[in-house]
Design a binder for these strands. Structure first.
Lengths: 343, 343
DNA sequence: ACCTATAATCGACACGAGTCAACAAATAGC
DNA sequence: GCTATTTGTTGACTCGTGTCGATTATAGGT
């Protein structure tokens, strides 16, 4: 592979001149520039990325910290990751996929200290996340997909759960629903203070109150099996409910199935709206699911973009971004049923 | 950050001695070694990855080339990627996620020439893939998830579609099914010679013949909507069929729904087995889907491992790996119906 | 006419590691 | 007891860039 010295020799200039022609850090005569670029083209010259990284102290590598086993992989996750990767690349950065168990975060610190990583993006953040503290302590630049309770001096892109939940509840209330249920994730998530769960539950309660509807919260693991259990609970205690908002994509599959097996008709007997599934997931439902779709692309891209801005030392007035997502009305919601269930 | 010079000074030795203590390329007295390691620990020294990469000419970075928009993202894809990332990291390598449109593959060559990439892993390979030719031409080490028609001198990890398809068909035949259908992907995939489609179709025909069953092939895009269309076609032309093998995970959702809406009972009226969906996808089905599950973890890991072996110059007797996947019997298959459909 | 600012270029050095040639001391071979 | 090899260590060089200081030529201001 041709190096800078080869280009300089062929163009008949000093190596530094080639550098300045490339970076524009100092003026170079047009004529000389032309000669240099010609030489670069002839030699098919590519500046060596590792040498640049070493010299400049910027590897342009960003670790995408992916919580591995713990919470299971959901189909939507890939969307965040791809969006971040695309955005990073458009800035000349690269995204290293880093499946890392929660406890093994020290590896990341080590690799950052070794100059491999310029920064990191963290997914699945809890409200009081040790990993965030560790990264802060070691001065490693990072951004979050999600957010912690203490938001000071933190770059993040997150869902605006308050707005999304409210959007969903308002949709149901406008359809005449008065008795609502909120299908949340596991109680463990509440205890561990997973941001999404805590915020969405709070927001649901607030929005229901504001809009004059009642709301019960149902907890369920993020699995079909547990969704079925949740349906049983619902059928026992919450038959008055005519509308369900779900934060739990996987659980909702079981939940809906449980109701359907019991003879319930989705949309006619009970309206269901999900705020946490992809469009693909919504269409896999029968009937297709009304959703407030998480804008995974925007969130992933924003997390990457804002981190890179910080890395490049650009002052950003607002590196904390919230995204609501769009209400997409499909066929799982309809006017609140009046009178008794027809069964 | 402490550098090698700091360690050398603190330990009272030359820099090269520190290097040799670290790499073991030359013998160093135990006593000296101890002093050096003590100094490294005290200074919290980490060798600079970029300097090592520059000096050694090995960036230890592998691009995971991810066909972006074209074929849509399926949930299973993340599994391959994560498995490859984990495997790579266990060898001290890193996986750069690289969403790249088919045509933009030149970028990869450029970045490989720039020393950023040590190699690449390619997904969604067609039997006669231009990208493979390009990488070969430029001498960029790569491995495939999937495989081309010309397998010579190529590292790959792929599904053994022949065996997987046969496993599926045998399962049905053993249950007494004689008239089978094969739900394939789009005809475009056949024209473009996507390996999975071409191989699985061939294998299905061969296996059915061998086991004495009839087999019709139904083409459908990988979407629920098209799956519904495929169901219509099936209901018109193939009502004799009692068993369906599907290569088309997304399409199968629509296909099954189409049959169910027409009053068909899955398992009782028609057995369905899918060879290309994740366990999660299978469980989202109602009834849970019998599958020959793609061993995404093994395939992703093997693609990474074999590439790294080649990069490190290890002669490998067999860098071409095939994986069948396990037959998991769930509730979508049962004995062939006898007599007429009860409708 | 003189001083200063800017354009254009060059050579030297630094970034932080790996590796080779050289050398002293210790050991082995016969 | 003399040569041949191994052990242990050092300094110098290299990987390919970015950038600073110095140098010359030219233009601009008074």
């Amino acid at each position: 592979m041709a190096k800078r010295a080869d280009v300089a020799k062929l163009a008949g200039v000093a190596e530094s001149t080639v550098s300045y022609a490339l970076t524009g850090a100092r003026p170079i005569a047009e004529e000389t520039k032309a000669r240099i670029f010609k030489a670069m083209a002839d030699l098919d010259y590519r500046p060596n990325a590792m040498a640049q990284a070493l010299r400049s102290g910027n590897s342009k590598m960003i670790a995408m910290l992916f919580g591995d086993q713990e919470r299971g992989i959901s189909d939507g996750d890939l969307e965040y990751v791809l969006a971040a990767a695309n955005e990073a690349r458009s800035f000349g950065y690269h995204l290293i996929l880093w499946p890392v168990r929660r406890r093994a975060i020290e590896d990341v610190v080590i690799q950052a200290d070794s100059g491999l990583l310029a920064g990191a993006i963290l997914m699945e953040v809890s409200l009081d996340d040790d990993r965030v503290k560790l990264l802060k302590k070691h001065g490693i630049p990072f951004s979050l997909i999600g957010r912690t309770k203490d938001k000071a001096d933190t770059i993040f892109a997150d869902r605006d759960f308050e707005a999304a939940t409210k959007l969903a509840i308002r949709h149901l209330v406008h359809l005449g629903h008065k008795d609502l249920a909120f299908l949340s994730t596991s109680t463990a998530n509440v205890v561990e203070k997973i941001g999404a769960t805590v915020r969405a539950e709070k927001a649901a309660i607030a929005a229901a109150k504001e809009l004059g509807a009642s709301l019960s919260i149902i907890h369920s693991e993020n699995s079909i099996q547990d969704g079925l259990e949740a349906a049983k609970e619902f059928l026992k205690k919450h038959t008055k409910c005519t509308g369900v908002v779900s934060l739990n994509a996987e659980g909702l599959i079981g939940f809906a199935r449980g109701l359907q097996r019991n003879g319930w008709n989705i949309a006619a007997d009970v309206s269901i709206i999900c705020i946490s599934t992809t469009n693909a997931g919504a269409l896999a439902f029968d009937p297709p699911l009304t959703t407030v779709t998480p804008p995974a692309n925007e969130i992933g891209a924003a997390a990457a973009r804002e981190l890179i801005r910080a890395l490049e030392g650009q002052d950003d007035n607002e590196p904390q971004k919230l995204f609501v997502g769009e209400l997409v009305v499909r066929e799982s919601t309809g006017p609140a049923r009046t009178g008794k269930l027809k069964r």
